[in-house]
Design a protein around this nucleic acid. Structure first.
Lengths: 149, 149
DNA sequence: GTCGAGTGGTTGCATTATGAAACCATTTAC
DNA sequence: GTAAATGGTTTCATAATGCAACCACTCGAC
């Protein structure tokens, strides 16, 4: 039987995250939600994906507590899909994906978009990883250990 | 026709990243590579996925310049899969996924693993996003604009 | 050298997910 | 009241996934 293998019970947080949001469309839906999309039709037009696929993904995102349904902001009888706190917390992942894409997936001069500080309009810095004492950490400076909690 | 839609030509860096590494297994392979896995068999045993799937993913990762093949470190006639600079640059994404998973995908007390500073063994801080002037930025403090390059 | 185990795959086939298009029930605009 | 927009569901073809069997090459022991 060829059921898609589940990583839900893995003890690795990366595996669990990937299980929930490690899907192409799921990630793009969250991206659009962060850019202000709220309605089924908005997502569909922006992403250009089949409506059935979108319906399945949105349902899953609501079940996982990343999106929630609330009465439409424009007062109509329809509903808005809005990010929960859990959904907003995906922001750093989105930024990390964006910065990697900027660096490695574009030829110089290719048209693209950049992330800026909303207040100043200036481009943001790279994400930074710090040790407990504040030291800047790079690839190779970290390891994984079992939690002792 | 039901060909999987490609996001390769999107002008959004997030879309391009997701297109390349936004696959469940691909991400897990990179994770294992960062933890030291180098050989086909190591990946297969650690991830428990079908060998044909692994073969396809590894080939794609090599083609995308994330992994490269080099003579096995143990001197045998086999080959090692090792991360390129582009592959190592995925580290922040991995950290972001990990931190989100730690926060939202585990019940308190559930066994898991944590990321620590290799030198001190102390748990690392959260990823930080800073504005050009050094201000710490959170969700909602950023926007996307077309690049003016 | 040569026999068997281990490594690193490929091939075939069943099952599942994806995607396009058609369809349908409400809701809104006119 | 009627037409169009919204937000889906259904149907069916195609593509991806996953298991198992198979195969070529390497290595270590003898």
């Amino acid at each position: 039987m060829a059921k898609r293998t589940s990583l839900k019970d893995s003890t690795c947080p990366v595996a669990r995250s990937v299980e929930v949001i490690g899907d192409c469309w799921t990630m793009m839906i969250i991206r659009d939600a962060m850019l202000g999309a709220r309605r089924f039709g908005e997502f569909q037009k922006s992403l250009g994906l089949a409506k059935n696929i979108l319906a399945v993904r949105l349902k899953a995102l609501v079940e996982d507590g990343i999106l929630k349904l609330e009465p439409a902001a424009d007062g109509s009888a329809y509903q808005d899909y809005v990010l929960t706190a859990k959904g907003q917390a995906v922001h750093p992942i989105m930024v990390a994906l964006r910065q990697w894409g900027e660096d490695y997936a574009f030829k110089p001069g290719e048209p693209t978009t950049i992330m800026v500080d909303r207040k100043t309009g200036k481009q943001i810095k790279k994400l930074e990883l710090h040790a407990a004492d504040g030291t800047l950490l790079g690839y190779g400076d970290t390891t994984i250990v079992p939690s002792t909690a």
